[in-house]
Design a protein around this nucleic acid. Structure first.
Ligand SMILES: NC(=O)c1ccc[n+]([C@@H]2O[C@H](COP(=O)([O-])OP(=O)(O)OC[C@H]3O[C@@H](n4cnc5c(N)ncnc54)[C@H](O)[C@@H]3O)[C@@H](O)[C@H]2O)c1
Ligand SMILES: NC(=O)c1ccc[n+]([C@@H]2O[C@H](COP(=O)([O-])OP(=O)(O)OC[C@H]3O[C@@H](n4cnc5c(N)ncnc54)[C@H](O)[C@@H]3O)[C@@H](O)[C@H]2O)c1
Lengths: 271, 271
DNA sequence: CTGACTTTGTGCACACGTTCACAAGCGGTA
DNA sequence: TACCGCTTGTGAACGTGTGCACAAAGTCAG
């Protein structure tokens, strides 16, 4: 069981190709068999994220007293295609009744089971500045099975101060505290320059899942899962769409001008 | 202007699209033919998000005095495969020099052009609570071409109070203010129940891009672009990975136990 | 029990995104 | 000039995700 494609600081796949330009590769396509992995990895990443959304929608429906939902209803509420929803649900099993729909409580249970929400996941927030305060004060996490059990910062003025009812610890105690409180998810809300070092400390403290708010590409060992929330990227993607829209508008305007000139525009069927 | 009509060659991709120089419209389908749109939409959404990351990495390199970068270096710094990086860059044109690499300043300019960052995008934040305060106080947006020009809330105690140097407006003034200040991106940081209504108001105020922090699936017209940041989903995806890891560990342990028993495990080739 | 009706679960085709591998192109060197 | 090593740009293979369409499987009325 060799650690595959290790990438510590240098990413890249070291091209094993010799210096020769022409190399015949008689290699009959390496087909690694992901047998053991098969079972759990059968669920596409994109589907997992959607399952979390379905779960929230279902919870809302349950509080509203709904007993069953059809894929159509649930899909509409979750903002997806109903076929996609059914396929997503099929990844976790067959819990629907044909002709009727899905029982809300059953679906909630099963999704929670798959997402590992039957167990609580202790969360630590590092960097109690603007964002860290907001996160620490946010009630939505504990309510969803993610209790915030530790806060860290370097600022001596902050250490010891309670934020959201929990006193801030010093970053140097991170290993001890994370281990004591069995932290399984670390949230990084420090300035960018500190993020990698904080990440390293979290990893060496045994934290295997990290949610990163700092606009930095974190380097982590293979066994650590990182998700990033990058607001600048989000805004820039939106900006791209604005620009695209403007371009399109320009093109369309030009097109319709030409069209008005007596020339048909390809693609734009006015009928 | 300078839209990216590939002046040297096509954009590069250009699938075997039939020559759109056809005058007669064959009317292949009721839906609009994406001919005019084709040009600008050639960049995959996923690539756009990565371009934003490359841009940030490049800016860092520029400040560090770097003149050129190879795709390998840039890819490593951005945490992606170098082939993917080159393909992403190829969507925006051919700005590299073979045998040398890319000129940092050129690349920055071109990415900014594609992302529409040559123009400033005015941002409005709605819901000045925990999160809204953090966003309003954050200096990273204005510095990146996204000036926050309006803050809104319903709380009368908040209206008029300056946050991050900008006074909070009442939500009822949203149409007027957004139009006056030419807001192009709306950020929703209200409690979930208010999100849809706020969204509707933003849309009717002419805002076409929305970044939503409320855990709610927003319903919007087709012409409005929504991106959501859902921390609960992020945490739940991480939770899923924790669970999967645990499952895999269990399976592997069992497997190696069986293997030690003298039986080869399918898929786990030790070679 | 039968038949009409509803909704699930999934095979299949297609679109999208990723990765490989290499010819083309460039700068430096003899 | 001719060569050589390096890096880009990209065709093509591959894998993943999406959406359609429909048989299978259930409910319910009579
Ligand atoms: N505030 C926002 O709305 C916002 C938006 C997008 C991204 N971000 C990103 O989130 C991060 C935090 O933003 P912020 O506005 O809260 O910044 P901030 O400056 O208000 O807070 C940062 C906190 O981290 C602490 N810190 C610094 N170095 C540390 C270390 N080594 N270990 C532990 N703590 C350390 C500081 O003492 C400070 O309390 C930044 O990377 C920022 O780019 C913030
Ligand atoms: N705080 C966090 O860290 C965090 C994390 C994840 C998600 N969220 C989500 O972000 C949103 C905001 O969170 P928060 O912690 O800042 O909440 P908050 O309660 O602190 O702030 C909400 C603000 O919105 C204002 N508001 C309410 N209705 C409004 C309306 N109709 N129009 C305009 N303003 C209105 C309120 O007056 C309040 O100031 C919530 O949907 C929450 O679920 C927050």
């Amino acid at each position: 069981m060799a650690a595959q494609r290790g990438q510590r600081n240098g990413v890249g796949v070291t091209p094993p190709a010799p210096t020769a330009a022409e190399i015949t590769t008689p290699i009959p396509r390496v087909t690694e068999v992901p047998a053991a992995r098969e079972r759990a990895r059968a669920i596409p990443e994109a589907a997992v994220a959607r399952l979390a959304v379905y779960l929230r929608v279902l919870s809302g429906m349950q509080e509203h007293g709904a007993g069953t939902v059809s894929s159509e209803e649930l899909a509409a509420a979750a903002g997806v295609n109903s076929a996609k929803l059914r396929k997503d649900l099929s990844y976790i099993g067959s819990y629907g009744t044909r002709g009727v729909g899905y029982e809300v409580t059953v679906l909630i249970e099963e999704i929670e089971r798959i997402l590992g929400l039957t167990r609580k996941h202790s969360v630590a927030v590092v960097g109690i500045g603007n964002l860290g305060h907001a996160l620490a004060n946010y009630g939505g996490f504990p309510g969803r099975g993610f209790p915030v059990t530790a806060l860290f910062d370097v600022d001596p003025d902050l250490v010891g101060v309670p934020v959201g009812g929990l006193p801030v610890e010093h970053i140097d105690d991170i290993t001890r505290v994370c281990s004591e409180r069995e932290v399984s998810i670390g949230v990084i809300a420090t300035p960018p320059p500190a993020a990698q070092s904080v990440c390293d400390r979290l990893v060496s403290a045994g934290v295997q899942c990290i949610l990163n708010f700092a606009p930095v590409v974190l380097q982590v060992p293979d066994h650590v899962e990182v998700r990033k929330v990058d607001l600048a990227v989000e805004l820039q993607v939106l900006s791209f769409h604005v620009a695209r829209r403007a371009d399109n508008a320009a093109v369309l305007a030009e097109a319709s001008a030409r069209s008005a000139n007596g020339r048909a525009v390809d693609g734009l069927v006015v009928s």
